[in-house]
Amino acid sequence: MLEIKGLKAGYGAMSVLQGIDMQIHAGEIVALLGSNGVGKTTLNNVISGFIVPTAGSVTFKGQRITGLKPLEIVALGIAHVPEGRKIFPNLSVRDNLKLGAFRRAHERIKQNFDRICALFPRLKERLDQLAGTLSGGEQQMLAIGRGMMSEPELIILDEPSLGLSPIMVEEMFAMIAQINAEGAAVLLVEQNVMQSLSAAKRAYVLEQGRFVMEGEAASLLANPQLQQAYLGL
């Protein structure tokens, strides 16, 4: 469904991604792993249209999306839940969720709203609260819920478990499984290697601008090289 070929991107003279190939198939969870600063967020921003790559292409459902504006990419069915959440702190939880359907699935705003309230009961209890006053974990749920409101076929989650307590991390992974079960493919960026490899079907490991490992999540989990580098085993 998403196909990335020979992708290069960076900031000014600094190149971050140096030729990347990646596929995400409909309905699967793909984990993107790598240490801090290797370019995971950069890749997300290329996919969602905030960074124009210097070479290569991104195709979504057969259509080339490199060079499209973020709002056009949202309309095609990719939702990006970014690092730092970027929710609207001055708006209520309800308004935040509704705005998630601004560009896509606006006709089904009611059904999706109810669906997300069912998925995130903590948000449902706080619909009239200002988003800026939510706890960190609740804000993360809101950011995901807002992304889900556009009925994405692919949802990009950039470090959703960042800053959450261990119990909330468990809850978060359960939700990701639920989101995926409802049909969306998930690109999951995580520091939480063990848990994301357990949740994912396939995974990519980014190092120095290239993928150094990729494949079935289960076999990566058993890979001694990866265990040593990322799990400290």
């Binding site: 969602s48 609207f88 308004d95």
Partner: peptide, 16 residues
């Protein structure tokens, strides 16, 4: 109101 406070978030939900 969304654009006023969180421009990036607004772009993420597809606001022009």
């Amino acid at each position: 109101r969304a654009v006023a406070i969180e421009k990036r978030g607004a772009e993420l939900v597809g606001i022009d």
